[in-house]
């Protein structure tokens, strides 16, 4: 397959998903873009036939490593835009008030943000990127059963909170 075409189709397909994934790790659009650009630049050094069928997990994994590198390498800076639910807890309505207003959609992100980070990450990879357990495992370097466990625990917590309303 023509390599140029291969690259451009993958950029088209994965540019946004990778950007939002990188953003979730870096909390900064600029650096997220850098990480994604680096990921694709590295992709240019790969042989299409070698990655066939596992482009997505490969991209997410490299993107993740790049983001971690950036985090490790750079001096920590205050994220440009934190998820709202994490930064403005006091001014928000209580869950009860929100239910009363039928504002359920506001609650999910709030509960999500309270989950441990590793659960948040696998949930994001699963539901935002629609990756399989195996692909998530490849991306995060966890074992498949570990991914299953984290997802399960995260979902269980979310479910309990939603039901308790």
């Amino acid at each position: 397959m023509d390599k140029e075409k291969w690259i451009s189709s993958l950029v088209k397909r994965y540019e946004r998903p990778l950007c939002s994934y990188a953003f979730s790790l870096l909390h900064d659009f600029e650096r997220a873009r850098d990480a994604v650009q680096d990921t694709f630049l590295r992709l240019c050094g790969q042989k299409p036939e070698k990655l066939k069928g596992r482009e997505a997990p490969w991209l997410f994994r490299v993107c993740r490593n790049r983001s971690l590198d950036i985090l490790r390498k750079e001096e920590p800076v205050c994220p440009l835009s934190e998820p709202q639910e994490a930064s403005l807890p006091s001014e928000e309505k209580t869950p009860d008030e929100q239910t009363a207003h039928g504002d359920l959609s506001q609650l999910l992100p709030r509960f999500l943000s309270k989950l441990p980070k590793n659960q948040q990450e696998v949930i994001r990879l699963k539901f935002q990127q629609q990756l399989s357990y195996r692909e998530i495992a490849h991306c995060t370097r966890l074992s498949e059963s570990n991914v299953g466990y984290l997802l399960h625990t995260g979902i269980k917590t979310l479910r309990a909170q939603m039901i308790n309303l």
């Binding site: 950007c19 650009q37 699963k126």
Partner: peptide, 13 residues
Amino acid sequence: LNAHYATEGETCL
């Protein structure tokens, strides 16, 4: 969850 992530702000290169 799918719906939630789908509405999340997007960014691109």
